[in-house]
Design a protein around this nucleic acid. Sequence first.
DNA 1: CTAATATGCAACTAAATGGTTGTATATACT
DNA 2: AGTATATACAACCATTTAGTTGCATATTAG
Lengths: 104, 104
Amino acid sequence: MTALAEIFKALGDPIRLEIVQRLSRGETFTIGDVSSDLGVTRQGARKHLQVLVDAKLVKLEPKGRDVYVRFETNSLDDAKAFIAEVEKRWDSRLEALRQFLEGE
Amino acid sequence: MTALAEIFKALGDPIRLEIVQRLSRGETFTIGDVSSDLGVTRQGARKHLQVLVDAKLVKLEPKGRDVYVRFETNSLDDAKAFIAEVEKRWDSRLEALRQFLEGE
DNA sequence: CTAATATGCAACTAAATGGTTGTATATACT
DNA sequence: AGTATATACAACCATTTAGTTGCATATTAG
């Protein structure tokens, strides 16, 4: 799969969206925290986190017996660029249509 | 599922990403065109399109025996806002860290 | 050293996904 | 009218996904 599609797919789940949002708010947490906070077993949490790791949105840092979840800086740049590009193209089409209709 | 997660999930597939991109480039096509252009059966194309319709990224307009695929204006706004928000928060955290380290 | 804690790895299940084929229906062409 | 075309709907299949439980391993606490 495309790297970009993989990023969107990783974001396409409420639990994973919540994880990313919490990270961006500066919250610090471990795999176990994700499990207890988001109401899923540790293994369930681990699987969601692996999806985010594979999409390079997140990295895992073992520290002692805990594993901390860290945000991967700049990981959303491609997704942002895609959306911006799509919207830009679409807007310029609408603008061209507007000018045509107004006869400019 | 959250409306937002549903949007990301809909974008989380190379074929659907391609459909959205083509629409934004101003291409005009029917369900049958998606099928032949993207190498999937009509029913396969139809299913992908339904995912995009459910996420409100696209609408289908029957015209005679054809069904045209149209881009749904502003449909990506929430996705864009989410990413912008996450990046903004993250950047301001990094900035705070920088200032702390530099002792400003 | 022993007990508790946090995770890893593997197996399993139910449901969703991505894809197909087959058949039916409506529209368009000659 | 009769044929070809574009789609709809349903059933089916293989794979992936989201979740679980069970057991093993490593680290921390007493």
